[in-house]
Design a protein around this nucleic acid. Structure first.
Lengths: 102, 102
DNA sequence: GCTATTGTTCGAATAATATCGAACAATCGA
DNA sequence: TCGATTGTTCGATATTATTCGAACAATAGC
């Protein structure tokens, strides 16, 4: 529960971002973060076990999609929208504009 | 070697597209198709075994990224740029604009 | 029809991911 | 300091992907 791995902007790889976002659970996390700005892990778990969510947050973090900071006992997550826009202009926007499957 | 599975535009799912493009081999196929317009499977194999490539082309086809048509004994592939643009505006452009990793 | 060419399909081995309970770590408040 | 709360890490299992040789299918040309 110590320091998180956050790649620097220049280390964000397109394949990793696409892989991170190709999972339904993670994509829905990202959509919710886009709506709400930031949220704790618990607020995003949708009833899933903590260990599963922790895994998904790690993938999102290590791919460069999400930034996590400590906030007391909880962890606050936000999208790295600016960094992503710098590295892959238009990508996150296009993904967020896509209609979620019915 | 008969009819290929090509989802209709409305059946193209974002997760599937992202997953298809999260693989380095498939991403490089897509980049090459974007440059050259269309190409046969053989022209895109980069020396890899045919069975491996056939697998990747299937993923690209079934996710809706690529359209394959018979052309004699060979198969001609092209990006479904228009369909993708309609369903996920800006997505393919953003991905193709991203600099390939060095 | 025979042969060469181009891909697909099958099958099996290997690798990578996902899922989740249980144990652990860090912080807050009483 | 003792719980309670919030996540992470570990370990084990299950599912899914990747890779590739070998066999098969379709077409073209002779």
């Amino acid at each position: 529960m110590r320091q998180f791995v956050h790649p620097s902007s220049s280390d964000i790889r397109l394949e990793s971002v696409l892989h991170a976002l190709s999972d339904p659970v993670r994509l829905s996390i990202v959509r919710q973060l886009a709506r709400e700005g930031e949220a704790t892990c618990a607020a995003l778990d949708g009833g899933r076990p903590k260990s599963s969510m922790s895994h998904h947050f790690r993938i999102l973090r290590e791919s460069g999609v999400v930034k996590t900071r400590n906030e007391g006992t909880s962890h606050m997550n936000e999208l790295r929208s600016h960094d992503l826009e710098n590295v892959f202009p238009g990508l996150l926007t296009a993904i967020l504009n896509a209609t979620p499957n019915i």
